[in-house]
Nucleic acid binder design. Structure first.
Lengths: 137, 137, 137, 137
DNA sequence: GTGGTCTAGACCACA
DNA sequence: GTGGTCTAGACCACG
C-alpha cells in the first residue's frame, strides 16, 4: 500500500485516502479480508493527523468497503454493495459524466474516447490479475 | 460550454469550474478571444451562488487564462499552447479510471458499463444541443 | 427539537444525537424538508463540542436520514432507505432481538410483550399524527 | 441466560453485559444464589475476549450484584428487590420503541413488523432450548 | 451566517 | 498494540 497525498489539490486529504483505497481494492492491490495499514502508522507515514486517517477509514466503513474491528484493525470487505440497482446506476453516472465532460473539454472525439475507455478497462483488469497472481505466489 | 459540478466531491465548486475551463481552454475547445458565459446565467444553470462563479472567474483571471472587461464580459486570453495529445490523454485517463473503479466497486459488469457510457454520451450530447438551440431562440 | 444527552450512559454522545433525531423523524416531530438546528447553536445548547454534533450530522447524512447543503444547513430527507429488503430485514432484526431479549430478562411473558408492542405502535403513530396536525395549524 | 451483544452500537460490550445481567437479576429471571455462566465459556459464546467478560463480572461485583468465589464461580447475591412492574415496563418500552422507530425508518409496514417480531421470538426461543439441551448432554 | 477540514492532544475500551 | 470519542481552536469555502 503506497498512498500519495497531494496537499495542494484542494481535495480533502481524507477523500484522497478514500479514493486511493477504493482504487487499490478495485485493482486487486488489496484483497478481501486483508488488513489495512493501521491508523497511527499510516498517519505518520502520510504526515497527517491521526484523526484524518480515522475519518477516511470511517467513511470507507460506512461505504461498506472495509470492516473495522476495534482493537484489532481494519479489513477489506469482499463483494460489497447492498444497494439497489437504481442507486448504483446513479452513483456510477456521476463518475461517467465527469469523464465524458472532461473528454468534451479536451476535444477528444467520441470514438477515441470509447477506445480509451476500453483500453483502460483492459489495463486495470490486467493489473488486477497481476496483483492476484503475485499474491498467490 | 458544458460544466459538470459535483456537489458532493469535497472539491470546492469554484475549483471545479476553474479546472474545467482550464481544460477546455488548453484543448482548444474554447478559442482565444471567445466570450465566456456571463456570471449570472452560468450561476443559475449550475444552481450555484453567483459569488462562487465570480470567484472562479477571478481565479481564472489571476491565472491569466481569461480577461474580464467590465460591462462587456469575460474573454479567453490568447496563446494557450494547446496541450500535447499525450498530456490530454493523461488528464482524461484520470477521470476514466475513476469511473471504472466505481463500476468495479458497484459490481457493474463490463458490458453494462459500456452501455451506460454510450447512453450518457447520447444524453449529454442532446443536452448540449438543447442548450445551443435554446440560445438561438 | 429538544434533545436530551446523558453524559454518563457510556453511549457515545454523537450516537445519542443520531438516535434521537431518527426518533424525531419517525415520530413526525421533524418533517421532510424541515431544517435541523444548526451545528454551532445545537452544540452550545447541549454543552458539547461543535465537532461532536457535526459527527452526528455526518452520520445521519451517510445513513440517508438528512441532507446537508454546506453553507445553508441540514435538512430532513423524506422517504429514505435505498437498501435491499434483505439488508433492511437484518437491520431491523438487531433492534427487535434486543427488545425480545430485554423482555426475557425482565420476565415479561410473550403475550404481554406482544400487547406492549402493539400499544407502543399505536402510541407512536398517534404522536406522529398529532405532530403532523399540530404543524399544519 | 441469553445475552445479546451489539458490536456496532458504540456502547461498550462489557456494559451491555452488565446491563443485561442487572436486568435479569432485577426481574427475578436470575435468582439469588444462582450460578452465572463462567467466564471462559461465556466469552466464547459471545465471541468476545475473556477480559471483556471478566471486566463485566468485576463491575457487577463492585456494584454488589454478584459475588465471585474464586475457583467456584460467580453467584448472584441476594436481596434484589424485584423491580416493580411499572419500572420493568419502562425499561422494556425503551427497547421496543427503538425497534419501532427503526421499522418506521426502514419503511417496514406494521403487519410485516409484527410478523418479524413473532418470527424472532420463535427463533430465539429455539436457540434457548438448544442451549439448555446442549448443557444437559 | 452555514458546514467542512485539519490539527494536537487527552482519555477510553478492547485484544 | 488497536480503533473510538471528545475537546479546543484554527482556517477555509460557500451563501
Amino acid at each position: 500500500m503506497i498512498l500519495q497525498i497531494n496537499f495542494k489539490s484542494g481535495m480533502p486529504i481524507y477523500l484522497q485516502v478514500v479514493d486511493q483505497i477504493k482504487a487499490a481494492a478495485a485493482s486487486g492491490a488489496l484483497r478481501p479480508g486483508e488488513v489495512l495499514p493501521s491508523i497511527r502508522p499510516l498517519a505518520e507515514e502520510l504526515r497527517v493527523n491521526r484523526n484524518t486517517v480515522a475519518k477516511a477509514y470511517s467513511e470507507l466503513e460506512s461505504l461498506g468497503v472495509i470492516e473495522t474491528l476495534p482493537g484489532r484493525g481494519c479489513f477489506l470487505k469482499g463483494n460489497h454493495s447492498a444497494l439497489r440497482k437504481e442507486v448504483r446506476r446513479k452513483l456510477l453516472i456521476v463518475e461517467i459524466d465527469q469523464a465524458i465532460v472532461q473528454a468534451h473539454h479536451l476535444q477528444v472525439p467520441r470514438q477515441e474516447f470509447l477506445e480509451l475507455v476500453n483500453e483502460r478497462m483492459d489495463v486495470l483488469e490486467d493489473k488486477r490479475h497481476a496483483n492476484v497472481n503475485h499474491k498467490e505466489d
